[in-house]
C-alpha cells in the first residue's frame, strides 16, 4: 500500500467521524450541565435540511451553515423551555424533539430533493497541502473539520480550566448545592442546551453542505443517536469522545469499502454494523463503569428552585 492510499483512508475516516465529533461534543456539554437531550438526531437532521435549503436559496454556504446552526438552536430552545423552565420529562421531550425534527426536515427539504451544489471548498495552502501523507490530511480539509477539532480542544479547556466550566459542571453534579451558592442553575442549563443544539445543527449542516452535498430525507441515518452513545462511551470527556468518533468513523468507512468489495457478506449486515458496534461500545463501557467512570450526578433530573 502506498502513502497516497494511506492518506486517503485517514482523510475519509476523519471526515466520516466529524459529524459525530461535533454533535457529541455539543451533547457532552449539555449533559455535563445535567440535561439529557435525546433530540440530537432531530436537531441534526433539521440542521442538514435548513442548512441545505438556505444555501440553495441564498447561494451562500456561510449563510447555509448559519441556518443549520440556527435550526438546531431553535429546536433546542423549545426543548430547553419545556424541560428546564417547565420541568417536563427530559427523555420524553427529547424523543418528541427527534420525531418533530425528522418530520419538519422532510417538510423543509421536500422542495430540494435531487438538487446538487458544490461541496464547501477545502483549504489549500500551496506547498504545505502538497506534502506527502500529512499534506491533505492536516492542511487540506474543509472548514468543518478544523471547527470540529477546535471545538474538542475548546470544550476540553472550558470544562477543565475555566471558571465558567467549573460552574457548569457543578450545576450538573448537584443543582441544589449550586443553587445554594447563588449559581443561576436554570440559566446555565438553558445555555448548555442551546450550545448542544448549535453543535447538532452544525453537524447536520456538515452532512448536507460538505460530506454529501445534497439533501435526502433521513440522511442522518441514526448518527444523532450514535453521537449520544459516544458521549456515554467517552465517560463525558471531550478527547475520549473524539477518539470514539474516530473509531466509529473508521467502522463506517470499513463498512462502505466492504460493501463495495462485496465479500459475500449481505449489505444489510454491514449497514447494521455501526448500530451493533454502538451496543457493543455501550456494553464495554458498562463493564468499565465499575472502575469509576460515572455520569454527571444530576443528569436527567429537573430542578425546581424553592421560593
Amino acid at each position: 500500500m502506498n502513502i497516497e492510499i494511506i492518506e486517503l483512508i485517514l482523510i475519509t475516516v476523519l471526515t466520516a467521524a466529524m459529524p459525530l465529533v461535533i454533535a457529541a461534543i455539543g451533547e457532552l456539554v449539555t449533559e455535563r450541565a445535567g440535561v439529557l437531550n435525546l433530540g440530537v438526531e432531530g436537531m441534526m437532521i433539521m440542521g442538514a435540511a435548513s442548512g441545505f435549503a438556505i444555501a440553495i436559496m441564498t447561494g451562500s454556504s456561510a449563510l447555509g451553515v448559519l441556518g443549520g446552526i440556527g435550526a438546531g438552536v431553535a429546536l433546542s430552545a423549545a426543548f430547553g423551555v419545556l424541560t428546564i423552565f417547565l420541568a417536563a420529562n427530559q427523555v420524553a421531550t427529547g424523543l418528541a424533539l427527534t420525531i418533530l425534527g425528522v418530520g419538519l426536515s422532510g417538510l423543509i427539504g421536500s422542495g430540494f430533493v435531487g438538487m446538487k451544489r458544490d461541496a464547501i471548498a477545502h483549504l489549500h495552502i500551496p506547498g504545505l497541502s502538497d506534502l506527502p501523507l500529512v499534506g491533505k490530511l492536516v492542511f487540506g480539509q474543509d472548514p468543518f473539520v478544523y471547527a470540529g477539532i477546535a471545538l474538542v480542544f475548546g470544550v476540553a479547556w472550558f470544562l477543565k480550566k475555566s471558571r465558567a466550566g467549573l460552574t457548569l459542571r457543578a450545576v450538573g453534579e448537584s443543582h441544589t448545592s449550586a443553587h445554594a451558592l447563588g449559581v443561576p442553575v436554570r440559566r446555565i442549563r438553558f445555555l448548555a442546551v442551546l450550545f448542544g443544539g448549535a453543535c447538532s445543527g452544525l453537524a447536520g449542516a456538515y452532512l448536507s453542505l460538505a460530506y454529501t452535498p445534497f439533501w435526502a430525507p433521513g440522511m442522518t441515518a441514526g448518527r444523532g443517536w450514535i453521537a449520544l452513545a459516544l458521549v456515554v462511551f467517552a465517560s463525558w470527556r471531550p478527547f475520549r469522545a473524539f477518539a470514539g468518533a474516530i473509531l466509529f468513523g473508521g467502522a463506517t468507512v470499513l463498512q462502505l469499502h466492504a460493501q463495495a468489495a462485496s465479500f459475500g457478506i449481505p449489505g444489510q449486515a454491514l449497514t447494521a454494523l455501526p448500530y451493533l458496534a454502538t451496543i457493543v461500545a455501550l456494553v464495554l463501557l458498562s463493564l468499565n463503569k465499575r472502575r469509576g467512570a460515572v455520569a454527571p450526578a444530576a443528569l436527567g433530573t429537573s430542578f425546581i428552585p424553592e421560593r
Partner: peptide, 12 residues
C-alpha cells in the same frame, strides 16, 4: 412528513 411533525408537536 407533516403528519410526523404534527405528532412531534403533539407530544411536546
Amino acid at each position: 412528513d407533516m403528519t410526523r411533525a404534527f405528532q412531534g408537536i403533539l407530544l411536546m
